[in-house]
């Protein structure tokens, strides 16, 4: 009798526990999926300087907003529920308020957990993203005008953005001053995007993963290697030798067959012929 009661109690206990555990587990799966999905940071949302890579950042940031509080320019915002950025985490939108790149980096100093890496002490080393001139069709400089605003506002002027001269084929006698971003120096502060004069910026700061490609690890640039080594690393081409009649030379990749004095080509020879062999043997016909 009492045994039956105990069994029933035990049974109810186990069922209750299983019920609770199942409910919570289902909830947890939902939460996990939601969390996984919100790791995709929208491209316009930039993390503060020194932010760890996004996956680590979401584990390290406690959503306290101390970086936001210590940002003197109200650049940083805390994401609210419903924003595309993970709730409670700090971000900024360059086109609204770019990062002013404070020398003392107060946001990083304020971070209690190191989600903003305290190893970042020189703001020029920050990599919040990379500026990309996304619209070459509308960029005024690409059209041959001298806007230059993105170049002039760049805090790392002449390093992160340079103006490279190109021939203006449209006018025929002007230069194009092409803004070129150098990712090696670009901090991703977004001043260029903020100040682009177009209604929609032609230059935008993108997360590095979107902004940049990556060369294969085994690629080597021959001219770089040559510069480093001080000499070419490949053996020089052997001098080519051709079996030619006397008074005739062959200039490989140049003029072709050259007749020295007294060995003039026949007057009827045409410069081009459908038969490549004839071109190669130009001047030799009838010999």
């Amino acid at each position: 009798m009492s045994n039956t009661t105990t069994n029933a109690a035990r049974r109810r206990f186990l069922v209750d526990m299983a019920r609770t555990a199942t409910g919570v587990a289902l909830f947890g799966v939902g939460l996990g999926f939601y969390a996984r999905q919100s790791t995709a940071l929208p491209a316009e949302a930039l993390r503060p300087p020194g932010a760890l890579p996004e996956e680590q950042f979401l584990g390290a940031c406690v959503r306290c907003g101390l970086c936001v509080r210590d940002c003197p320019f109200d650049t940083l915002k805390l994401s609210e529920l419903g924003d595309a950025v993970a709730t409670g985490t700090p971000y900024f939108t360059a086109r609204d308020v770019p990062c002013e790149m404070c020398d003392d980096i107060p946001c990083v100093v304020a971070c209690p957990t190191g989600a903003l890496d305290h190893g970042l002490t020189d703001i020029d080393d920050a990599r919040m993203g990379v500026a990309v001139l996304v619209d070459q069709e509308n960029c005024l400089n690409f059209l041959g005008l001298r806007c230059d605003v993105c170049y002039r506002v760049c805090p790392v002027i002449d390093k992160a953005i340079t103006l490279d001269l190109q021939h203006n084929k449209r006018s025929g006698h002007h230069a194009l001053f092409i803004p070129v971003v150098h990712s090696e120096h670009c901090t991703g502060c977004g001043k260029c995007e903020k100040s682009c004069v177009l209604p929609e910026a032609a230059i935008k700061v993108l997360p590095t993963r979107l902004a940049r490609g990556e060369a294969a690890e085994h690629y080597r640039l021959g001219w770089e290697e040559k510069r480093k080594a001080g000499e070419s690393l490949v053996p020089p081409d052997r001098e080519r030798q051709f079996n030619l009649p006397e008074g005739v030379r062959y200039d490989y990749q140049g003029e072709g067959v050259i007749f020295e004095q007294g060995a003039a080509p026949t007057p009827e020879a045409t410069p081009f012929d459908d038969d490549p062999l004839k071109t190669l043997n130009r001047g030799l016909e009838g010999r």
Partner: peptide
């Protein structure tokens, strides 16, 4: 969930 996703998921 924090361990599996590597993020402080509950805070969302």
């Amino acid at each position: 969930v924090a361990m599996v996703t590597g993020g402080v998921a509950w805070e969302m």
